[in-house]
Amino acid sequence: MRGSTTKGAPPPVSAPGCGWYWMAGALAALGTYGGTAWTVRSWAGCPLGNDASSNIGLNALMLLIWVCMTLLLSLLPFALRRRPFRGGRAVMWLAPLAAAIALTVLYRVGMEWPYDPPGGPCTDGYPLFPFTGKTGP
């Protein structure tokens, strides 16, 4: 007898180890940094935008985004233990990467893009005056 499995039974699915949890924090850090850099680059030409105060708000937000991404990516191994993907270990290691990319894109989309009217100053896309729907007077 070479193995402990019986004949005809599928091999046991190997559970992810501690590397998955370390990888969650690292992928969240890369996603947070990448999403923030992408946001800063998109708003660089807009003096009234998200980076108007030398990126202080974005830099402070990075810690919160990293914690949220890390928690979400850390929950992924638990979900995959209950319902593993077909394709073996390679797919189980690529799933956190795909989730980190999706969370980074979600973060960037949530930060909006500047509104740049022709002949006018660039403004944030959010209404400056509540309940009017306008970005200025």
Rank of each mutant, 00 (worst) to 15 (best):
C46Y: 04
C46E: 09
C46R: 00
P47D: 11
P47S: 05
L48D: 15
L48I: 10
L48S: 14
L48E: 15
L48N: 14
G49I: 05
N50F: 15
D51A: 15
A52M: 04
A52L: 10
A52Y: 07
S53M: 15
S53H: 14
S53L: 13
S54Q: 08
S54N: 11
N55I: 01
N55F: 01
N55Y: 04
G57S: 08
L58I: 02
L58C: 01
N59G: 00
N59C: 03
A60P: 00
A60K: 06
A60L: 13
A60Y: 09
M62S: 14
L63I: 11
L63F: 13
L64S: 06
L64W: 13
I65N: 06
I65M: 13
W66K: 02
W66Y: 05
W66M: 00
V67G: 03
V67M: 14
C68M: 12
C68H: 05
C68R: 00
M69N: 15
T70N: 01
L71V: 14
L71Y: 12
L73Q: 02
S74N: 07
S74W: 09
L75N: 02
L75A: 15
L76I: 00
L76D: 05
L76F: 05
P77Q: 07
P77V: 05
F78N: 11
F78T: 13
F78I: 09
F78M: 13
R81S: 04
R81M: 07
R81V: 05
R83W: 15
R83S: 12
P84K: 04
P84S: 10
F85H: 10
R86H: 09
G87E: 04
G87H: 06
G87I: 00
R89E: 08
R89I: 00
A90W: 10
V91K: 10
V91M: 14
M92T: 14
M92P: 05
L94T: 06
A95E: 01
A95D: 06
P96K: 00
L97G: 13
L97N: 06
A98D: 07
A98P: 08
A99M: 15
A100Q: 08
A100N: 08
A102L: 05
A102S: 03
L103V: 07
L103Q: 08
T104A: 05
V105Y: 03
Y107M: 04
Y107Q: 02
V109C: 06
V109A: 11
V109H: 08
V109S: 07
V109L: 09
G110V: 03
M111F: 04
M111L: 06
M111A: 09
E112Y: 10
E112S: 14
W113P: 00
W113L: 15
W113E: 15
P114Y: 00
P114K: 01
P114C: 04
P114M: 00
P114F: 03
P114A: 04
Y115E: 10
Y115L: 15
D116W: 12
P117G: 03
P117Q: 00
P117N: 04
P118L: 12
P118N: 10
P118G: 03
P118Q: 11
G119A: 04
G119Y: 02
P121I: 13
P121H: 10
T123W: 09
T123R: 12
Y126C: 11
P127K: 00
P127A: 04
P127C: 02
L128E: 14
L128I: 12
P130K: 11
F131G: 11
T132N: 06
T132S: 15
K134H: 03
K134R: 11
